[in-house]
Computed example of a mutant assay.
Amino acid sequence: MSTSETPAKQTIITIVGSGMMGSALVFPARENGHTVRLVGSPLDGEIIDACRKTGRHPKFVKDFPAGVEYYKIEELDKAMDGADLLICGISSFGVEWFAEYMLPRIPETLPVVSVTKGLIDDGTGQLISYPEYWARRAAPRKLRLNAIGGPCTSYELVAQDQTVVTFCGEDLETLRWMKGLMQRPYYHIAVSTDVMGVETAVALKNAYAYGVCITVGACERVYGIDSIPHYNSQAGAFGQSMLEMQKLMRLLGSSNDEALAVGIGDLYVTVFGGRNRLLGKLLGRGLPLDAALKELEGITLEGNVIVVRIVKALRAWAAQGKVDLAEYPLIAHLGEVLIDNKPANIPWEAFVAEKR
């Protein structure tokens, strides 16, 4: 089907990765009348078994729409047969698996859109987006790789809360076609060709959410877990996060205010409803990193990956005289916590230090 045509009711959408976000996208896709095939990754066998038995994802409180088809990874060829759109629903921990296992199996004619958020070192010290990384891994084949960014938690999408996201990619026609497939009265989709800007913004929010949520845990440590929320410290860390995100986006090649807004919105929803909030709070309460991670065993924490990658890159660039770490005090401190295993202690005075 040409990407300029109105999407047919029986367009086939295959979603690889039956985690919460990949599975949440089943709802708008199937509600629009498309054939939807949900494929579990190699780690998702039990999830697919549960979906087949109950018609519901184990972590959702709402049944999938009728007619969704469920496949295990061993049935991938069947699930991809005739597909018009492939959605990558894996977490950042599955990026290499997707590169090695999925990319060779994706036809160049099949558009792909990914919900995976993050940045990765390209081997030269430069950070690039996952779509760019996959494009390089797939070369010389030219795959049609796109991504979804923006403030969207899976369970609220399932609940049909009003949600605004951005589909980004190189080709506007393809983006508009995908928007036509997926948009719903509660799922609103902007389109952007600034892939690096959008992907950088939504990756950074996972890192900076820790900074804001550490302040939540610190207040709980001082005033009690059931105390009235304290917002001054949260706002101070949130404002610093926005400032550093903007600087990092410019450093990595994007000064797009719209992309920054996508990241700020995503930061907001992650602070109040994301999984990374849990680790930030525990660190703020004074738990050592190892103890906090043990308490959250089994929960996917993508913020850890991006903090480590950003801070390692910044430290290398600082050693080369390319950046001044003093301009990034919050992310630098998060690196001390997650890389150097130091206790969380937000460097407030560094936020207001006069720049020379």
Rank of each mutant, 00 (worst) to 15 (best):
S233K: 07
P229K: 10
D226Y: 12
S227G: 10
M242K: 12
N232R: 11
D226G: 11
M245Q: 04
R221D: 04
S241V: 00
S254H: 14
C219A: 15
G253R: 02
E244L: 06
N232Y: 03
G224V: 05
E244D: 04
C213Y: 05
A235Y: 08
G217W: 08
I225C: 07
D226V: 12
G236S: 08
G217V: 04
Y231L: 10
S255F: 00
D257K: 12
N256F: 00
I214T: 03
F238C: 08
I228K: 08
G253Q: 07
A237N: 08
M242A: 15
S227T: 09
C219E: 14
S227W: 01
E244G: 03
I228Y: 15
N232G: 03
S227F: 09
D257E: 15
Y223G: 08
L248Q: 04
M249L: 03
A218N: 10
A218M: 09
M242Y: 04
H230V: 14
Q240M: 10
E220L: 07
A235F: 08
S255Q: 14
A218V: 00
E220C: 06
G217R: 02
H230A: 08
Y231M: 14
V216I: 15
C219W: 13
S227P: 03
M245I: 13
L252S: 00
A235Q: 09
R221G: 06
H230R: 15
K247S: 10
I225H: 13
A237P: 05
Y223P: 00
V222Q: 14
S255G: 12
E220M: 14
E258F: 13
S233W: 04
D257F: 11
E258Q: 15
A237K: 01
M245F: 11
C213A: 13
L248E: 00
G239R: 12
H230N: 13
S233G: 08
E258L: 12
A218D: 02
S255W: 00
Y231V: 07
Q234F: 03
G236D: 02
Y223A: 15
A237G: 04
Q240W: 00
E258D: 12
V216C: 02
G217Y: 06
E258P: 00
N256G: 07
H230L: 11
L243V: 14
H230K: 14
Q240P: 00
S255H: 13
V216P: 02
I225G: 01
T215Y: 00
Y231S: 15
R221C: 02
G239W: 04
Q234L: 10
M245G: 00
L243S: 10
C219K: 15
I225E: 15
S254F: 05
N232M: 09
S241M: 05
S255A: 15
D257W: 06
C219T: 03
N232F: 02
G239T: 12
I228W: 11
F238M: 08
L252T: 01
S233M: 13
Y223L: 08
S227H: 10
E220P: 03
V222S: 09
Y231I: 08
N232H: 05
M245T: 10
G224M: 02
A237E: 10
C219R: 14
V222N: 09
A218K: 06
R250K: 11
A237L: 04
P229V: 05
E220K: 04
R221V: 01
A235D: 05
K247Q: 12
M242F: 08
